[in-house]
Design a protein around this nucleic acid. Sequence first.
DNA 1: CGGAGCTCCTGGGGGC
DNA 2: TGCCCCCAGGAGCTCC
Length: 294
Amino acid sequence: MPELPEVESVRRGLVGHVVERPIESVEVLNPRAVRRHVAGARDLSARLVGASFGVPRRRGKYLWLPLDDGESAMVAHLGMSGQFRAAPAGSPDEPHLRVRWTFRDGADELRFIDQRTFGSVCLEPVAADGVPVGLGGLALDPFEPEYDLQAASRALRRRRTQVKRALLDQTLVSGIGNIYADEALWRVRLHHARPTQRLTAAQARGVLQAASDVMAEALEAGGTSFDDLYVHVNGESGYFERSLHAYGREGQPCDRCGTPIRREAFMNRSSFLCPRCQPQARKSPRSPDRVSAP
DNA sequence: CGGAGCTCCTGGGGGC
DNA sequence: TGCCCCCAGGAGCTCC
């Protein structure tokens, strides 16, 4: 499941495969893969043929490849199961191949493969800073130099929601998905449903720093992969799942206290937590969780 | 306008 | 053995 570290791994993989190679053809095998390109598959293809990509960039889980016209970029989101893969021209199509780019040099094709088709590719104009205009509402991610932990933690505490909802909100901080949200919450011993307005400033900074740390470690390890849905451009998957403390570990002992990890339904998906280290905030008005009256 | 819930999609796996 | 239902979840959309 590609979150920031996995998308960054893909971005790095693309650098050596697609930069400054004039495009020969673009074949859209499933129009759903280009549904975000409102002008349609034919337009996407027509505008890409003859162009070349610059060095791929990323913000959060979004990836974009600048075009050599200096005015636009090909924006991609991997969704749940999207992959970019370099493949020898003419090698057999993968079962879920959605888009194919061939290059005039006749070397490896670029392929977008996506089983669940939540991913997409489109062309967009870029703003003066080179960021696609459609990504305007997307928050900075923790790996960007302009990212400000203090500002992000203040914004987190201004929300009136539960802490995990806020972590997953890409307009607050981008790049965090279900896996790294659960890992960050485990590290700082917070329950996913803790109200954001009850977080202390230190807790807000702590959970964001933990998210940043766990994603940096995952990137170092090559990304997280639970099955073969996610692989790098060259087909290799990551190894970070061995380092997870909460996500996917239902019934296994907590690495801190030995209590079995529990899976709870949250936001129509799963949250994994240690019920002892990460107790649910009590609802009593006398709960010590609550901000005390002045 | 912020927050919450629904929906899209496909194949693997478990239950019967 | 086969069928059916559940499950994975990012984010755009709608509703309040």
